[in-house]
Design a protein around this nucleic acid. Structure first.
Lengths: 226, 226
DNA sequence: TCGGGCCCTAACGAATCCCTAACGCCCCCG
DNA sequence: CGGGGGCGTTAGGGATTCGTTAGGGCCCGA
């Protein structure tokens, strides 16, 4: 997780860099407003810690500049403790406001709280093969644009194969993942449900191009149906 | 925008209610931890303002109880100003922490900042399917131009499905979002209320085109009723 | 006190899904 | 040339889940 520290006080920057780096964060720094905006454009941080009292651009201008194109969480650090200053910064688009001097562990906790709110990176990619598109997170399968109905078992089996695309998945692994660890010998289930998946997804179910059999071993999914 | 105020001090509650109501917020209140959790389940607020010093459950327990099933922004208000208290609350899942006494306009600005962070709900003002139009922000449903009356439970169920359009929503998720986290096995509720929604919204309730069932898994809303 | 809306409980066919069983095919090996 | 194991396919019974209806308790306003 990347954090941009925008502060013109070298002492604070150094202290924060050490503390944050030690906790596994990736730290970028900037010493004035213009540099902060450029650094944000270049590095796309996950959280911005912004000192309002920097030379050059005013802190509010930096916030507005960021908000023009980014929704990155902004934590403002300022020596001014008047409530009007806080209101101005928060309404400009800041997400949190801490007055100096501050406790380091409180700042860290607030950074963690802000970082939690950006799970945007968790949406799983969609997988496509032939005219079929599979959206794993939405549990949605379409073939030539129309939705395909899969039963729970069919879906679990397809999911295991897709998550291991281009890799051979042994029969035992498939049985364990789909039916549970006590069914590792009932290979009949696999034949049955693979056939149903092929019937629903393959362009030519009798000649599989994507859901391939490896006799005696298991099955393999490949997206380049050569 | 709905705000849940959880505080056992009637003075503070009264003052906040007046201030927030004057600014157009919908205010719900609770005087202890248990009541706060119940109110959150029932009303699904957009922001929770939580006093840590309430009788009954500890503030941390309330935060954890909410976080078990909800991502609603939580603003903690507390008389304790030690950084350890702040760290504990923030790491438990709170999003902001303000110490008493606080300036009313600062609290309002922080509430606004938190409210901004849930744009996933507001980026889709109206959803249309068939001859039905749903305005999520106005809580209004029309079918062929005439208003449809939905009960509160029906509305919450429809809302969850619409906010996840084209995505499969598991039975467990639906039950948690609509009835609360302790009803995750009562699938009878879903069958009942889905039927009522279909009766009120589907052109042919016995052959659903938009509110689809995926047996054994959950339900899915799709707007392209092919 | 009454009536209506809302929510929950209970129960019943109907639809769906999973598993069992059997048969034909291909390939390998004897 | 004949047998056998692994695979693909089909059909049908049993269990789970779903859709639907009816009825009772609760709260609230008339």
């Amino acid at each position: 997780m990347k954090i941009l520290i925008a502060d013109d006080d070298p002492q604070i920057v150094r202290a924060l860099r050490i503390t944050l780096t030690a906790r596994g964060y990736d730290v970028i720094t900037a010493a004035d407003g213009r540099a902060a905006l450029n650094a944000a454009i270049e590095h796309h941080p996950d959280v911005v810690v912004l000192d309002l009292g920097m030379p050059g651009l005013s802190g509010i201008e930096v916030i507005e500049g960021l908000r023009g194109w980014s929704t990155v969480p902004i934590l403002v650090v300022s020596g001014r403790s008047e409530s009007w200053d806080k209101v101005e910064a928060l309404d400009a688009g800041a997400d949190d406001y801490v007055t100096k001097p501050f406790a380091a562990d409180e700042l860290l906790a607030r950074i963690r709280a802000l970082g939690r709110r950006t799970p945007a990176a968790t949406d799983e990619p969609t997988i496509a093969f032939g005219d079929v598109v599979v959206d794993l997170s939405a549990r949605l399968v379409t073939k030539a644009g129309v939705a395909v109905r899969l039963t729970p078992t069919e879906w679990r089996l397809l999911e295991v194969l897709l998550r291991n695309h281009d890799r051979l998945v042994s029969r035992e692994t498939l049985l364990t993942e789909v039916w549970g660890p006590q069914y590792t010998t009932d290979t009949g289930y696999l034949r049955l449900y693979l056939a149903q998946l092929r019937k629903k997804l393959e362009p030519e179910p009798s000649k599989p191009r994507y859901l391939l059999t490896e006799a005696g071993m298991g099955y393999r999914f490949t997206s380049d149906g050569a």
